[in-house]
């Protein structure tokens, strides 16, 4: 057992590089540093939201945590045990406690497997229940995600996207995990159904003391569901902190830009806002800019930002920010650099 106060999940300096060496058949070598030195902690019973735009590496972090891909370096400790150094049996039992839900409930369920069988499968594989006990457990799981018992004999195509996501959640819950990695679990759903799933995840967390790593690009949803948030940009965490504080008073210019870009359903706020739209494109992760990755789009960028990569600096007890000038920006939030024109892509 772990001691009190120790985080349930501890990721240290995680790196995941994808690539190809030069070989007989391919003359070019390339590598993408999808995750480039990420450290984070999740405490028991809390939700850590991981946000960022496409290509920032948030899903890769999720996959590495769920043990679906091998990190290039770094450690992932779950309940204090290093996932990388475990033997097969230990790893398998740990995996029971660490589940993942994917974005697309259409492709994550086997179309030829009835719902009952799909939920029962993990119970059988891990030798938890069989026969009548397994049947009752399946019904109980369906009930806990708000699906009728009649779902057991039906196939995935008979359900809507939201219902399918409920089935995926029931399947993940079957092994009574402690941590669930939720990889964009609501991105494919309509707003009204999104709210159903967000509420369901919240209820289940309360009832079962679940811990979530919640990965999404929808900042409003992440803010709603997470206790703490980590913001990623091109493979690195640029800011982390409690959601209220991080959203209310972002320190990193990227966090500021990201939250500022979320449109509000209020025409008065939208039209009258003088918040600057951040210009430029997200650079290719194949060839990220040197120094601070964000310097190409940052209105505050100076020479040092182009050469030196800022480390994640602790702010207070529970916050971190990776920016050379966060103190100055906090004191004087008006960008000193001239406003980049739209054409300056």
């Amino acid at each position: 057992m772990t001691g009190a106060g120790e985080p349930l999940l501890q990721v240290r300096d995680l790196r995941v590089h994808f690539g190809q060496r030069r070989s007989l058949f391919s003359r070019s070598a390339w590598s993408v540093r999808a995750v480039d030195g990420v450290s984070l902690e999740i405490r028991r019973g809390e939700t850590l939201g991981l946000v960022g735009e496409s290509g920032c590496g948030k899903s890769t972090v999720g996959r590495a945590v769920a043990h679906l891909l091998k990190p290039s370096s770094g450690t992932i400790r779950f309940r204090g045990e290093d996932l990388g150094s475990l033997d097969r049996t230990r790893r398998r039992s740990l995996r029971r406690d660490l589940q993942i839900i994917f974005q697309d409930p259409y492709s994550s369920l086997d179309p030829r497997m009835r719902i009952g069988a799909a939920i029962r499968e993990p119970l059988t594989i891990h030798g938890i229940a069989r026969g009548e006990a397994a049947r009752l457990r399946v019904l109980e799981l369906l009930d806990s995600v708000g699906l009728p018992a009649s779902a057991v004999d039906r196939y995935p195509h008979e359900f809507s996207g939201g219902q399918r996501q409920r089935i995926a959640i029931a399947r993940a819950l079957a092994l009574e995990p402690e941590l669930i990695v939720c990889d964009e679990p609501i991105s494919a759903l309509d707003v009204s159904v999104q709210a159903q799933i967000v509420n369901l995840l919240g209820e289940l967390q309360e009832r079962r003391q679940l811990t979530y790593l919640f990965i999404a690009h929808d900042l409003a949803v992440v803010r709603h569901i997470s206790h703490r948030i980590a913001v990623m940009y091109l493979g690195r965490i640029v800011e982390t902190g409690p959601s209220e504080i991080l959203c209310g008073e972002p320190l990193h210019p990227y966090t500021k830009a990201l939250f500022g870009a979320v449109p509000r359903a209020n025409p008065k706020v939208e039209r009258n806002s003088d918040r600057p739209v951040i210009q430029g494109e997200i650079p290719s992760p194949l060839n990220p800019p040197g120094g601070c990755h964000f310097h190409t789009r940052c209105p505050y960028a100076r020479d040092i930002c182009r050469t030196r990569d800022p480390s994640l600096e602790s702010v207070g007890t529970d916050r971190g920010v990776a920016c050379h000038f966060w103190k100055e920006i906090k004191a004087n939030p008006v960008p000193n650099a001239c406003n980049r024109t739209e054409a300056a892509l």
């Binding site: 009204s192 999104q194 709210a195 967000v198 919240g202 900042l219 409003a220 803010r223 709603h224 959203c247």
Partner: peptide, 16 residues
């Protein structure tokens, strides 16, 4: 049903 980036946190969303 739509959480706003600056709305109150922690309350359940009104799902339809």
């Amino acid at each position: 049903a739509r959480p706003e980036i600056d709305s109150d946190r922690g309350t359940a969303l009104c799902a339809i």
